[in-house]
Amino acid sequence: TEYKLVVVGAGGVGKSALTIQLIQNHFVDEYDPTIEDSYRKQVVIDGETCLLDILDTAGQEEYSAMRDQYMRTGEGFLCVFAINNTKSFEDIHQYREQIKRVKDSDDVPMVLVGNKCDLAARTVESRQAQDLARSYGIPYIETSAKTRQGVEDAFYTLVREIRQH
């Protein structure tokens, strides 16, 4: 089974770092803004072998026109913010609204991801993020692309959301 996953969120929150940590098991430290990259990885989730087709997208506003296209083809979405960047957390709402509009559905598989949880300088409390996820009816997972904490959990949870859909 193949799953088309799309990673969305503001610029600099760590979308590529999360994806590369999942696929290649290493942490990319330097920031190089993405336009669009796709990665494929075969994994076993709950005993089922599946192929993850992951689209890593641009957070930069100037590429926002490309969003409709990949939102149409994606089956599930990782909505990523950084726990030390309140603005990126506030941006999640717009991504969710755009996904709902493009998919013409209120019920699209999504996982809210709070990345950079290895950093002490948190400005978005776990509780705020949990409340937001609960209001959307989606899971919330904290990750660190640096330490790998929660990385597999985030992507695998999204696959489970798609399966249950």
Rank of each mutant, 00 (worst) to 15 (best):
T1R: 03
Y3C: 07
V6M: 05
G9D: 01
A10F: 06
G11N: 15
V13Q: 14
G14P: 00
K15G: 01
S16D: 00
L18E: 04
L18W: 01
I20E: 05
Q24G: 13
N25E: 05
N25T: 12
H26G: 13
H26E: 05
F27Q: 07
I35T: 07
I35D: 08
D37R: 02
S38L: 11
S38A: 01
R40C: 02
I45C: 08
G47V: 04
T49H: 05
C50T: 07
D53C: 02
I54N: 02
D56N: 01
Q60F: 15
E61P: 14
E61G: 14
Y63E: 14
S64M: 03
M66Y: 11
R67Y: 14
Q69K: 04
Q69S: 08
Y70K: 07
Y70L: 14
R72S: 06
R72H: 12
T73D: 05
F77L: 02
C79N: 04
V80E: 02
F81T: 08
A82L: 02
A82C: 05
N84A: 10
K87M: 02
K87R: 03
F89E: 07
F89I: 07
E90F: 01
D91A: 08
D91G: 06
H93G: 11
Y95C: 07
Y95K: 07
R96P: 06
E97S: 08
Q98L: 11
V102H: 07
V102P: 01
D104E: 05
D104P: 05
D106M: 01
V108Q: 02
V111W: 12
L112V: 12
L112C: 14
L112R: 02
K116Q: 15
C117N: 09
C117M: 10
D118N: 14
L119T: 15
A120V: 09
A120C: 13
A121R: 10
A121G: 14
R122E: 11
V124H: 13
Q128L: 12
Q128E: 13
Q128P: 11
A129M: 00
A129G: 07
Q130C: 04
D131C: 00
A133E: 13
A133T: 07
A133M: 07
A133K: 03
R134D: 10
G137M: 10
P139W: 06
I141S: 10
T143A: 12
S144K: 15
A145T: 15
A145Q: 05
A145Y: 11
A145E: 13
K146L: 13
T147R: 10
Q149N: 13
Q149W: 07
E152C: 11
F155Y: 07
Y156R: 14
T157E: 13
T157F: 13
V159Q: 09
I162T: 10
H165D: 14
